[in-house]
């Protein structure tokens, strides 16, 4: 078993939390991981990406080679587009469609969506709206995780267990909200 993932977004959108949740689940499943992250200046509203590699064998490089990712999970459409060169021939793009327009030169979002839909397999969703439905806009990253869960080589139950562990220190309300967000994302994917 071997799966390469790219997780992308804008600094502050919870990209590293998503990477951590998937990595935690993979480790619980007894798999090897390497997860390369961006720290430092770029986290101040810049483009942020995590490379996550999961395997039953030894993982060599910390970075995913281009053209090899099974999934690009993005919480922002322009950042999904930026990572497309990493996508494998049968790979999935699962992305939030709500743009973060913190630059003057932001391209027309319709054209970004059109390009993303040309990926081998694509799921575009308004995760911000679903997150509000779950109880808080801040669960947007977990909605996207739920929508991408079908493309991960890990059972949903493990991801949900990781969500519980991760948010338990913040109280039961936050745990339930994130489980709702995960389920809403999951449901959107299965309705497509």
């Amino acid at each position: 078993m071997k799966q390469d993932l790219i997780i992308a977004g804008v600094g502050g959108q919870g990209i590293l939390t998503i990477a951590e949740l998937i990595a935690r689940s993979a480790v619980r499943a007894g798999l090897n991981i390497k997860q390369s992250e961006v720290h430092g200046m770029a986290q101040r509203g810049g483009a942020v990406v995590a490379h996550l590699r999961i395997s039953s064998e030894k993982v060599h490089a910390d970075l995913v080679p281009r053209g090899q990712a099974a999934l690009i999970l993005a919480v922002e459409p322009l950042e999904a587009l930026r990572q497309l060169p990493y996508l494998g021939p049968k790979g999935w793009v699962v992305t939030n469609t709500t743009p973060v327009r913190n630059i003057d030169t932001y391209p027309p979002v319709d054209r970004i969506r059109d390009e993303l839909r040309r990926a081998p397999q694509a799921l575009l969703l308004d995760a911000d709206a679903l997150a509000r439905q779950a109880g808080s806009g801040r669960t947007m990253n977990v909605v996207v995780l739920g929508a991408a869960a079908h493309a991960l080589a890990l059972p949903d139950s493990m991801l949900e267990q990781s969500l519980q562990e991760r948010f338990t220190p913040k109280g039961d309300e936050v745990v339930q909200m994130n489980l709702r967000a995960f389920a809403l994302g999951r449901q959107t994917a299965s309705n497509q």
């Binding site: 804008v10 600094g11 200046m41 770029a42 986290q43 101040r44 509203g45 810049g46 483009a47 281009r66 053209g67 322009l78 950042e79 587009l81 930026r82 497309l84 060169p85 996508l87 913190n102 630059i103 030169t105 932001y106 391209p107 027309p108 054209r111 970004i112 390009e115």
Partner: peptide, 14 residues
């Protein structure tokens, strides 16, 4: 050597 999208623009920190 996959081509990058022509729509891309950089998003520097701020």
């Amino acid at each position: 050597t996959p081509a990058e999208s022509e729509l891309l623009c950089s998003r520097p920190p701020r």
